[in-house]
Design a protein around this nucleic acid. Structure first.
Lengths: 219, 219
DNA sequence: CATATATGACTGACTAGTCAGTCATAGTCA
DNA sequence: TGACTATGACTGACTAGTCAGTCATATATG
């Protein structure tokens, strides 16, 4: 077997802190499991992912997973929650509503570009689209926490833009989806077609905003 | 055995034709398998779908599937091809380019609405998004046959619209994705969130076209 | 040393793919 | 035309392998 060095206790400095505290160690383990599970689920989808692989990647025995999660399904559900909650929290900490609506939305788009499109988080979005129909609780959660809030925020911005005369199309407030659609397409594009036709998401989003706000006088 | 009525020869009127011909029957069988497989794959995803269920739904023994397909994977791949090819063929038979560009695109959107959004075909698109990363050959095929062609067609229409002065935003021709994005979002929305917040896709697409072409003087 | 935590070999349910055998139909012959 | 044979489409019980979840044992902690 030569499995003597199962988890290399001598190299125990993964975290800078000694982490001798039980609760801390447990939290670290749970974290490692969540991260490993995320990788595996993204790469293979829910059904095709093996718990053995997650355990191996997390540097943990399979049984350990069951100390933290009831079963594979609830692990998947909790995983999505765990990863998404901090994102929502950050979105709630909106930047101060100063400057033009276009600037606000451009800032938002820039963040989205950097933190979602083409990243692990983007892959998670694709995963939710993929598994949503078979995990209504995940789809529900995602709708409640991300979609409905995001839509409400966007709608408010659009209405502000209309009130200030920055946006012409008044009906746009009824469909914030139109504002977000190209960003979502960019997320999906990156994981499916980037190999064939790389997409300059930043430029595309700029063109889309030009479409909504009219072209910038100076850039 | 009591298997006397294996496939109800007396009720053999599935197709209007007698279909006594062997080749015809085989084609019918294959068709039934493809249809059943489509339902199952859409409902459960590739990995979670059981061939036993496909066979049962198709009214066929499991072994019969292997007379038509090499294995589960190639069945999935051929299934996607089989379903998509006629769609592409129909798209190639474009309507005559008469009337305004807006009318052309509106007609296209109407067809898309009726034949894709909220239908089995829409679910297939979601399935491709879901399984694409694990089936590069499927993603490749879909890109080659549908995405790149669709994009080229849209780009041509956009350029025509710009030349005729119907479309202001010149850069739009570089990103036909922007034109299509809301339609794709509608497809995904229907399968994930329609329960929570039904989406009037037709109205949304209208608003989107207003955004691109400017509001209609009279509707 | 008593308790909490972690391990991984093990079990049993499940399923992709196989193949020996069946039987409806097509083809042949008188 | 009617009977007899050849064909191969079709069947479904079976095999070999996989993997989620368990639990007796080992290890770390306080």
């Amino acid at each position: 077997m030569a499995k003597a060095a199962t988890h290399k206790p001598e190299a125990g400095g993964e975290a800078s802190a000694p982490a001798s505290n039980r609760a801390t160690r447990a939290a670290e383990r749970r974290n490692a499991i969540v991260e490993a599970a995320m990788e595996e689920f993204i790469a293979r989808g829910f059904a095709a992912t093996r718990l053995d692989d997650i355990a191996k990647r997390a540097g943990v025995a399979k049984g350990t997973i069951y100390l933290h999660f009831k079963d594979k399904e609830s692990m998947f559900e909790e995983l999505v929650r765990t990863v998404i909650v901090p994102v929502v929290a950050r979105l709630n900490a909106l930047p101060p509503p100063t400057g033009s609506v276009r600037d606000l939305i451009e800032t938002f788009a820039g963040n989205f570009l950097k933190e979602v499109i083409g990243t692990r988080r983007g892959d998670l979005v694709r995963l939710i689209v993929a598994e949503g129909p078979r995990f209504p609780s995940v789809a529900d959660f995602y709708y409640r926490e991300v979609v409905s809030r995001g839509m409400a925020g966007m709608r408010a911005l659009i209405e502000l833009g209309i009130a200030r005369g920055e946006i012409r199309e008044k009906d746009l407030a009824r469909y914030p989806q139109i504002l977000i659609a190209p960003a979502m397409i960019a997320v999906i594009w990156q994981s499916l077609f980037a190999r064939h036709a790389p997409l300059d998401a930043q430029d595309m989003l700029r063109v889309h905003l030009d479409l909504i706000f009219g072209e910038r006088s100076t850039t």
